[in-house]
Design a protein around this nucleic acid. Sequence first.
DNA 1: CCTTGACTTGAACTGCACTTCAAGTGGCAC
DNA 2: GTGCCACTTGAAGTGCAGTTCAAGTCAAGG
Lengths: 132, 132
Amino acid sequence: MLLDIAEVARRSGLAPSALRFYERRGLIESSGRNGLRRTYDAGTLGRLALISCARLAGFSLAQIGRFLVATPSDTVLRARMAERAEELDQEISRLTRMRDSLRHAAICTHTPLVECPEFKARIEGIDPSRTP
Amino acid sequence: MLLDIAEVARRSGLAPSALRFYERRGLIESSGRNGLRRTYDAGTLGRLALISCARLAGFSLAQIGRFLVATPSDTVLRARMAERAEELDQEISRLTRMRDSLRHAAICTHTPLVECPEFKARIEGIDPSRTP
DNA sequence: CCTTGACTTGAACTGCACTTCAAGTGGCAC
DNA sequence: GTGCCACTTGAAGTGCAGTTCAAGTCAAGG
């Protein structure tokens, strides 16, 4: 099943220009052409989902390109993957706290919002309802 | 207790140039000068921690600037905060899966790593050790 | 066949978060 | 007092991930 660029863009949530950019960078490839127009097989959607996840995780496109072709013998790259996994672990904690702070800020009555003790406590990961 | 720019940079993990940039953007302010040199009070470190968290959470500096002065009557802004909290919830899930995939990739024997079924399953959030 | 609209291209541009530069200043240690 | 080094400034530059532009092409529908 072949998809045109508009369909891949629609289903991936990426702009056509981004798809062309990624192709130029070697991250994806079109499987053929209908006239001049790119056609993609359905596997491209999975590839784009992975790219989007990796971007969200803070990888640059250059890095993503390298990971996409990495093999078990790429020991330096794998070390970097492991390292980034641990960094992500910490970032996930921070983001969770940020999420909680934002939820609180959305209902808080303190002025300014960011000076609210509970906002601050949530950013720092302190549970203010508990006293040590 | 006053800190100089080098000390704030060291403790915040940000470059001096970034601190000057943030000051120009109104995100932080120095509390005074020692000669020409900026001095900061310790509260600046907390402010910078918040800014770093917000950047990690995907907010632009312009947005962060607005949040820093937001009050409970800023209803549009608060709606945006709540909305972003929910987006973050989903991103946290995705990042958790990415972390798990990377951990797996670091030890996997599949070539190329990203085509490993378990790698893919972890990205998609499927537990491959369980069959539905 | 004709028309239309969405594709194509390469290169220039944009937005954002910084960083660097070059010339000057001045705190502070000796 | 002297000298060194890290600060200062404003403006230009950098890196990155795209986007837009202008001119051309062509698939597909009527």
